[in-house]
Amino acid sequence: MDDKLFLGGREISSRLFLGTGKFPAKTVIPAAIARSGSQVITMALRRVDFDSPAENILTYIPKECILLPNTSGARNSDEAVRIARIARAAGCGSWVKIEVISDNKYLLPDNAETIKAAALLAKEGFVVLPYMSPDLMDARRLQEAGAAAVMPLGAPIGSNRGLKTKELIRILIDEISIPVIVDAGIGKPSEAAEAMEMGAGAVLVNTAIATARDPVLMAEAFALAVKAGRQAYLAGLGATKDYAEASSPLTGFLQER
């Protein structure tokens, strides 16, 4: 079956993108990446704490993966652009997940600042993947700005609450021609499958895998769910109905005389 995801001019082998935060130990990450089959892997850029300079996360990400540094910590478009430029200059490639957040309680993205950063970074040749609140007009603006995809949230970051914004994401999938990648909030493989059944191009999962009792096993569970959901989308779901419609014939019952 010819069903490929293309982003930034590249064919992407897995529709499950994996984040690397919150794992119980960094040594678990390579195994989780392997079992997830993920090719696109996110990470963040931070100042070094001289008192406890932890190891570089890149050590744990296989060379063949596409690195997707996020701009977390950015509170406006200028800060996001700066982080993206540093990440690229540091040899991370030209992909960037734009994340502009000034709300510390719900970590909801600032769409207006995200659009500004997306336009600038796309002009500079970045493959721009913006994390956003699922608003149709803003998704259109991001598309016009040159984003490679839009990444609406299902629920607040790290909440594991599932596809709470489902109806809005459904509209984006219907109206936006670039891939819609559901990012944030997905807590269970069934929710990842549901996003894919709706026609999402991919899902980005971090907390649900990293904080599972067995992250490596959960990584594979998500991989299977994403594949199943995508296949169901391609197969075309049957119609839903308000009343029963028998699956077995309504004639030739054995008690008929």
């Binding site: 935060g21 960094k26 990450i29 990470m43 931070r46 932890a54 996360i57 890149l58 540094p69």
Partner: peptide
């Protein structure tokens, strides 16, 4: 001077 590194993130 900024001394930075890549860390785990989503």
């Amino acid at each position: 001077l900024e001394v930075l590194k890549f860390v785990g993130g989503g």
